[in-house]
Structure formats: C-alpha cells, structure tokens
C-alpha cells in the first residue's frame, strides 16, 4: 500500500499535467493558430484532468498531517479546485452539446486551467514554503454562510437545468 501523501503526488501530477496541456491547446484555439487537432486536445486533456481532480482532492485531504483542514491555504485550494472543476465541466458539456470553440470558450478554458495551476502553486507553498505566487492573498478565506451556499447550489442547478433544456431544443 502507498500512503495518501504519495497517492496525492501521483494524482496531482496527473491533474496539473493534463490541465497544463489543455491550457496550451486552449491558447492556440484562442489565437486560431496551430494544428487542427488543438480543439480535441484541449477538451480531452481537460477531461483527463477533471477525472484526476477528485482523486487529488480526496488524497490531499487524507494526506494532511493534522486533524482536518487546519490551514487557510488548504481551504483556498479546495475552493479554487472546485471552481476550476466547475468551469471545466461547463466547458465540456457545452462542447458536447455542439457549441463551437470561439474566443470566449477558449478564454474560459484558460481561466479554468489557471485556477487549477494556482491551486497547485498554493500546494507547493503549503508543503515547501516557497512559491512564485507572491501577490495572491492565500491566507484569506472567503467562506459563505451555510444558507448562502445552499442558495447558490439551488441557483446553479436551476441555471444548469435551463441551459440543458436550451441546448437540447
């Protein structure tokens, strides 16, 4: 058996690697340059990263040496990775439902990738105390009250359902 820490490293490498590849492909899509396979690469790599993300999150939580989430950087990592995953899911569904890869689509893809790479950067600072992300306020956590999160979930589901109907029709 391997420890949760080692498994977290494996899952993180997969996530960051595939997201980074997707980010480059989305950049080429936005610039309308490069090979014609760039759209496929962008979305398949994004899907790969998305599959690896839950493993990275769960193994990361299990690998924490203390009891639970006891550092604001860990909380920010969780929120950033979930936001990035949300954007990625939206992009993949949008593509699956027939939308084309225009500048806006590519930009959202790059934002998703940037959020995931920021998450990885914060992880580096948490474990090694060093980072290039010097100016990001990593010690400040914006935590909603419980009712606000529930409201947002309801709102998100409503938007989700509405857009699904629109795309189907």
């Amino acid at each position: 058996m391997i420890s949760a820490g080692t498994f977290h490293v494996i899952a993180t490498e997969l996530t960051v690697g595939t997201f980074a590849l997707s980010g480059v492909a989305f950049l080429l899509c936005a610039l309308n340059k490069g090979p014609s396979s760039k759209e496929a690469v962008a979305h398949w790599a994004l899907l790969g990263g998305l599959i690896a993300t839950p493993f990275a999150i769960i193994s990361g939580v299990n690998a924490i040496s203390g009891e639970g989430i006891d550092n604001p950087m860990l909380a920010n990592k969780l929120l950033l990775s979930m936001t990035s995953a949300g954007l990625a899911i939206g992009l993949l569904l949008r593509k699956m439902w027939g939308s084309t890869v225009d500048l806006r689509h590519s930009s959202v893809g790059m934002i998703s990738v940037a959020l995931m790479l920021t998450t990885a950067g914060i992880g580096g600072e948490y474990s090694r105390g060093e980072t290039l992300l010097l100016f990001i306020p990593k010690d400040t956590v914006m935590l909603f009250p419980m009712w606000a999160s529930i409201t947002i979930i309801a709102l998100g589901l409503a938007i989700f359902a509405k857009s699904a109907v629109q795309h189907r029709s």
């Binding site: 936001t83 995953a85 949300g86 909603f144 979930i153 938007i159």
Partner: peptide
C-alpha cells in the same frame, strides 16, 4: 460544491 455547480451552470 456550490461553486462547482454555479460555475458549470
């Protein structure tokens, strides 16, 4: 989870 659903939507 709320952020995931919201941004996907």
């Amino acid at each position: 989870f709320a952020l995931l659903i919201l941004f996907a939507g």
